[in-house]
């Protein structure tokens, strides 16, 4: 498909560096799916949906900076929804999110709650000023917060919050956040990996499953079409948490 022209109805600041763009239409995505956003004349980047008609962006580079600088009434090109999102399974679900990675999970949690699921959330932030979407999660059910600096909730990484929960109680776990945070969680509860759905990030170029830049070693999973949501047992023996490829296809360290 060609990119469609989407107008930004509103821009809401969620935290320093993080903004939500409200789009002029409901694109009916599954939570965990993404769109390729084209900032005309600059670049095209993948972003997860934080709702059926919203995208939440953290400014980390030239393209995301341009997205967060857009104003009401401006337009972007959009391809999507793309990829495989989360599947709602079981009766009791646990959401584990880190930083801006909580955005697709808030969307997922709301759909799960609407479908009658019991939702518990474990959210990790760097500090209290980064705590986006906290109220969205609190409305859904029990919410445990961790901050790296202890300015709110449990002091420490998200995995520190795992101790406050009985992981065996949950039928399905939904995970999204910085790669090393996700890897930390998956390795700590690796015996539960089959019930973890992780929304991961790789360098996307085509977003159509043919260029190969996002393929995950050693199976060659095309993250842009077979993901970005991947069951964690497939990640355990993969490159995930160890290295990732950049724009050249060369290997580099994982971020975050």
């Amino acid at each position: 498909m060609r990119p469609i022209d989407v107008t930004i109805l509103d821009v809401v600041s969620e935290a320093p560096q993080i903004k939500t763009l409200w789009l002029d239409r409901d694109l009916d995505p599954y939570p965990g799916q993404y769109a390729m956003l084209w900032i005309r004349g600059l670049d095209e980047v993948p972003m997860s949906f934080s709702g059926p008609d919203s995208i939440t962006v953290q400014s980390v580079g030239e393209a995301s900076e341009a997205l967060t600088s857009l104003g009401k009434g401006e337009s972007i090109g959009l391809r999507g929804p793309l990829g495989r999102g989360f599947t709602i399974l079981g009766e009791r679900i646990l959401i584990i999110g880190g930083g801006v990675g909580v955005a697709p999970l808030a969307f997922l949690g709301e759909q799960a709650a609407d479908a009658g699921r019991e939702v518990t959330s474990l959210l990790g932030y760097r500090c209290c000023s980064d705590m986006i979407f906290l109220e969205r999660f609190q409305r859904l059910g029990r919410t445990v917060v961790t901050t790296d600096d202890g300015s709110s909730g449990i002091c420490g990484r998200v995995s520190a919050g795992l101790e406050a929960l009985d992981i065996d109680e949950y039928d399905q776990i939904y995970l999204c956040g910085p790669e090393m945070m996700m890897w930390d969680v998956i390795s700590k509860i690796r015996e539960q990996a089959e019930k973890i759905q992780a929304c991961i990030n790789r360098y996307f170029k085509c977003a159509a499953g043919i260029c190969g830049s996002c393929c995950l070693d050693p199976e060659g999973i095309r993250v842009c079409v077979e993901g970005p949501v991947i069951r964690a047992d497939r990640l355990l023996e993969s490159e995930f948490g160890r290295y990732r490829r950049g724009p050249t296809g060369g290997k580099g360290p994982c971020r975050g």
């Binding site: 498909m1 060609r2 990119p3 390729m36 084209w38 600059l42 670049d43 095209e44 980047v45 090109g77 391809r79 170029k205 085509c206 977003a207 159509a208 043919i210 260029c211 830049s213 950049g246 724009p247 050249t248 296809g249 060369g250 290997k251």
Partner: peptide
């Protein structure tokens, strides 16, 4: 090493695909 062209790198058109990846590659050394 080449990072390739900025996106969009592909566009679907009637009966085909136009791409401009821009020869991204890590070089023969890698």
């Amino acid at each position: 090493p080449r990072a390739g062209h900025p996106g969009p790198c592909i566009v679907h058109v009637d009966c085909g695909l136009i791409n401009a990846m821009g020869l991204p590659n890590p070089s023969y050394r890698d």
